[in-house]
Design a protein around this nucleic acid. Structure first.
Length: 209
DNA sequence: ATCCCGAGGG
DNA sequence: CCCTCTGGAT
């Protein structure tokens, strides 16, 4: 089995499910949850979103919500001032320009404040079922350690390299599996390389500090 | 390149 | 204490 197929095979065996762990009931809740997840764990996001969506159940509710009331409910997340402002403004734009719906287009999504390429890719992948590889801190780290990208590569370059290396049908599931793998196994600080299922494909044990 | 920013782990 | 967490805007 080749290197690419080997990596796919091992990750699939480890994480058969390959779905997002961000709680959401519709496209707007998913978008908000992903916006909140910047520099935070999904667990922390899922801790605040139930009350947030209970008190502000619709796009219109977020438009009418006082900024301070949104901030209060997401404070434990961190970066809460920017996130609250971006979410409220995004709700206003969705209401006025997109008929209250989350657009299914990459450029439209990235035109929303607080929504960049990574967030747009997650929404397009998880909700609209497009083949995407959202490159976050975990995906980038794992890709670089596996020699699928260079250390100095930007997130966009990493995304392009992964898309070139892996078959399109695998992109979305690969994304989730690399995230989970990076979060719990190939950790930033102290990865357990000795027990790693991808050891034979990896350069990191040889060059780690 | 810097700032935003609280929570959790080591 | 220091580092990291599903980034994006300036």
């Amino acid at each position: 089995m080749g290197r690419i197929a080997g990596i796919l095979n091992r990750l699939e065996g480890l994480y058969p499910e390959a779905a997002t762990t961000l709680a959401h009931k519709d496209a707007f809740e998913l978008l908000v949850a992903v916006m909140l997840s910047a520099q935070t764990t999904d667990e922390s996001v899922n801790r605040v979103t139930p009350a947030l969506f209970r008190d502000f159940p619709t796009v219109e509710a977020f438009c009418d919500a006082p900024l301070a009331e949104i901030e209060k409910r997401i404070r434990s997340i961190g970066l809460y001032r920017n996130k609250a402002r971006h979410i409220k403004e995004t709700a206003r734009i969705l209401s006025t320009r997109f008929g209250g719906n989350v657009p299914a287009d990459q450029k439209d999504l990235e035109s929303l404040p607080g929504v960049g390429r990574k967030t747009a890719n997650v929404v397009l992948s998880v909700w609209f079922k497009e083949h995407r590889i959202a490159v976050d801190t975990h995906v980038a780290r794992v890709a670089k350690r596996l020699r699928l990208a260079d250390w100095e590569d930007s997130a966009l370059i990493v995304e392009k390299r992964l898309m070139a290396a892996f078959p399109e049908e695998s992109w979305s599931t690969l994304h989730h599996r690399m995230i989970h793998f990076g979060r719990y196994r190939c950790t930033a600080r102290r990865p357990e390389c000795d027990a790693c299922i991808l050891k034979e494909f990896c350069r990191y044990p040889d060059i780690r500090p």
